[in-house]
Structure formats: C-alpha cells, structure tokens
Amino acid sequence: MSDRSRTSVCAIGAVLLMGWLPVSPAGAARQVPRTAADDAPVVADFLTRVNAYVVIHLQAERAAPKLPQEATPKQIDQTQRAMADRIQAARAGAKRGDIFTPEMTAVIKRILIEVLAGPAGARRRSSIMDDNVKFVPLTANQRYPDDVALTTMPPGLLKALPELPEEMEYRFIGPHLILFDQHAHIIPDFVPNALAGK
C-alpha cells in the first residue's frame, strides 16, 4: 500500500470516528449550516468507494505489462490501454453515482459553491475554464477523451476536496467534475454539472 493510500485509510478512520460523535438535536432543528463534521460520514463512504476502485486499479496494474522507467510513448499508451481494458471489464456494470453518491454529489456541489465564491473564487473558476471544453457527454467507466486537455485544478479547490489516493485525480471536463484514474485514463465516476451550482 502506498503512503498516499495509507493516508487515505487513516483519513477514513478519522472521519468515521468524527461521524460517530453525537450531534446536537437542537442544532439540527435550527437548521444551522452544515459543517465538515456533518459531512464526515458521507466523505468517509466516498473514500471507501474510491479505495474499492483503487483495489481494482491495482489488480489491473499488476496484470498489465510492466512499464519501464524509460518508456517510449507507444509503451506508455499500450500499458494505459491494457489497464483500462481490465478495469472496464471488472466494472462492466458501473454507473454514474456508484462513487459520487447523491449525498456526496451534494457535498461536492456545496464545496464548489463555497470555493468558487467571491473574487478569489472567480479567479479559480477562470483558471478551471482555461483550456476547458464547453460540454462533453460522459458515462461512468469510459476512457478519458483523447482530444480533451487536462484542466487546471486550482490548489485552493484541491485543498477543499477530500484527498484522493495517488492513483486518482479530480479534473473537470466542461462543467462536470470527474474522478480521473490517471494511470489507466478511465473516468470511474463524475458529478454532472458540478460547476453549475445547485
């Protein structure tokens, strides 16, 4: 298990623990704004789902031809596609929402609204839209489109989103926030129209 994966597992433990902390019924009745602690169980569940995907990823990686440290572009491409084929086969029934559950989708959208608000937020949004495409229809478990550039992910946004294992990244394709398996070039799941707000 990589350091990053270990960190994620520890993070899951921590947020699960936070999730068990008692919540004030009075606070809930007054409809106070949700806090990170409120979202902790949802985030923990999300990271569990991400890690379940990473297990499939690692199995595919072990089965794929080993990439030398000094590879040619053709070798990189072949390894990537071999991994993608195995992952897509292992997740043949995957659908949108398997990883970004409706609850996690709501958390993500809340984070985005917060991080993209105000002048700093406007700058981040502009940064995301730099080189972003307008709209591309997506399905879960598809290959990342070859002709779409990887978008900018502002550090302020990445800091606000749950940290992912080393194998995974967040990116945008048009208004959709995607999970990106950067070794296999697979989109395991995505939040549709995440940039559109609520």
Partner: peptide
C-alpha cells in the same frame, strides 16, 4: 504541469 498526464514520468 497542471495539464500534464502523470504517465509522462515514464517517458525516456
């Protein structure tokens, strides 16, 4: 960079 695929690290 932010537009780079991490697989570039294997490119000779």
């Amino acid at each position: 960079g932010n537009h780079d695929d991490r697989n570039q690290r294997y490119y000779k």
